[in-house]
Design a protein around this nucleic acid. Structure first.
Lengths: 334, 334
DNA sequence: AAGAGTTATGGTACCGCTACCACAATGTAT
DNA sequence: ATACATTGTGGTAGCGGTACCATAACTCTT
């Protein structure tokens, strides 16, 4: 492996000059630059990112810490982060915390030792204390989806409450006259917001009753159990807004098993916009989060912070879109 | 941030001694060690992984290059790699090539500049040339799932051919009397192997005809199209072995839309063992790859190579298991 | 008692860059 | 003519570790 000194020697200049060419910083004569680039090519010189990191204190890496990779919208998110990072010359470390605070903490430490320039958190464990600790560590970071506090840090997420309203309104428009909601764990803020959005729209309607709200765990089986429970409790329900897509798929599965026709008897609307909703028969109507955009925005904001461009701590809330599909297509089939 | 010199000063020893304590190498008196550890704690000293990397030429990082994160068994794989790497003290970089050779090449370069200790490839683009180039670069690496050449490098994958035989035999056992196969892109070796496994079992059977083999793209829509094509061509087919789970889900969807009952009229068996097969109604029988084990084994082998423990280049083929589910449950419903 | 091995510690030259300062040769406004 | 930017280049001290060598005290052979 050739070093910067080899390049300097071969091109007959000093290491300073080579460094300037490498970083396009300071003054360099065009001819000199040419000579240097020539030498770089003949020596197949590749600058050592490690040495650079040590000397400059910035590694041009960012880290992505997520709760769990089985989270089905992680791939899209990771893709966005990776792509944006790459175009800005950053490489991505990743770690999963499996929602264990100590694991998350351990990763933060590891990443600090590696001089990562910034961190994106997408993990339920990230709360106030973590935010405070991160703030004192001086490593720029962005929190995705989960929001500890808008004042302490920058948060990127989608407008869950408005999305929930969208979903419920859609079900109403499709003629549903008794709409239930399967909600996610209330420790998770997004689940809370979605529940509120549901309440916003239905609480003043004549048929509304709190017993139309059934808890679920944001997983497939939770959706199934909740749907069964719900049908037992309210056999006349004709629309369900499910708190996330995974549970929506579960609910659909449970309904089909019970011999209930979707959408003819019960319409279903999910939330997230993951691919899975297209895999079922019927396909499931969902409120799609702009997952890629969330990841891309988070990464861009992070890089801005890294570059010292003042990015005030605030909430960046992206809009969601309803994707109507067969699971709510009452108008087609009678 | 405290440095090793600060620790040395506070504990009244030389940096060499601190380094020895840090790395548990060489002789250190117990009392000295205690003093040093004390100083480390009071200073909240964290060794710089970057400086270590520069001085020692090993970064304790490995990289995972994959074709595409939307590949549904990537999460499980990544989880395995991350977990095993973590327990051995390694941190994971990741990059996706989207099956573009130049992107893959670019990543290899980036990772070399970052002194990664080893690379795991799980990308279709990785062929003979890449293997040769990697061999001359002296960076240890493992190829997952795709196999350029068993002699040139270490390959970890599952026994696709045997798995295919398992699937077809299962369909036969369930009473299917005309079994088709939807196969994946033949550039991909695993798709080839699975097709061969199918042929192994059926080619000598009376009903067999090459037109029972229908091409697909390994994606959901490809499975749908292929299933439609197949039913048109052979309306009397009563079993389909689909080359991967994604296409199996697509095939199921298409059959249900055509009003064909699964498994009553047509049984379906997929391949891969991804979660998605549990999301459908009916759930899909599949040949499960030991995805976690594949990732874990690859990582362990890689770390062995990094440590210089002679690992001969060879093929590590893991066994697959059939998971019988409702989509082939002929015996239950008539 | 000399030589060799074990235990314990210190000194320091790197690793391959960047960042800062010094210096010189120009142009150019006063 | 003087002062002062602008352009171009070189020298070198770090960055924070590791790895090798030197040194010394002590124990054990022979």
């Amino acid at each position: 492996m050739a070093t910067i000194r080899d390049v300097a020697q071969l091109s007959g200049v000093s290491v300073s000059t080579v460094s300037r060419v490498l970083n396009k910083s300071g003054y360099v004569n065009q001819e000199t630059e040419l000579k240097v680039n020539q030498a770089i090519k003949t020596l197949q010189y590749e600058p050592s990112a490690v040495a650079r990191g040590l000397a400059s204190k910035r590694s041009r890496t960012i880290a992505l810490i997520l709760s769990n990779m089985t989270n089905p919208f992680f791939p899209e998110l990771a893709r966005a982060v990776e792509e944006v990072a790459r175009t800005f010359g950053y490489t991505v470390f990743f770690g999963s915390s499996d929602d264990q605070a100590d694991r998350e903490q351990a990763y933060i430490e590891i990443f600090r030792q590696r001089y990562v320039d910034g961190i994106i958190f997408s993990s339920h464990t990230f709360g106030m204390e973590e935010a405070l600790r991160m703030n004192s560590s001086h490593i720029p970071y962005i929190v995705l989806d989960r929001a500890p506090s808008e004042e302490l840090c920058s948060v990127v997420r989608s407008n869950n409450r408005a999305g929930a309203r969208l979903a419920v309104q859609h079900l109403l428009d499709r003629g549903c006259s008794k709409i239930a909601h399967i909600y996610g764990p209330q420790e998770i803020q997004t689940a809370q917001e979605r529940l509120r959005g549901y309440e916003d729209t239905v609480k003043h309607l004549s048929w509304y009753s709190p017993s139309l709200q059934v808890p679920g765990n944001f997983l497939l089986d939770g959706g199934m159990t909740a749907a069964e429970q719900l049908i037992e409790r309210h056999p006349d329900v004709d629309g369900i807004f499910v708190g996330n897509d995974l549970m929506a798929v579960g609910a659909l599965k449970a309904l089909l098993r019970m011999g209930i026709k979707v959408p003819e008897q019960v319409a279903i609307c999910g939330f997230d916009g993951i691919q899975l909703t297209e895999a079922t028969e019927p396909e499931i109507t969902t409120v799609a989060q702009p997952i890629y955009e969330l990841g891309a925005l988070a990464t861009k904001l992070l890089i801005q912070k890294i570059n010292g461009e003042a990015v005030e701590n605030s909430l960046y809330e992206l809009e969601v879109t309803l994707i109507p599909r067969a699971s709510t297509r009452k108008d087609l089939k009678q």
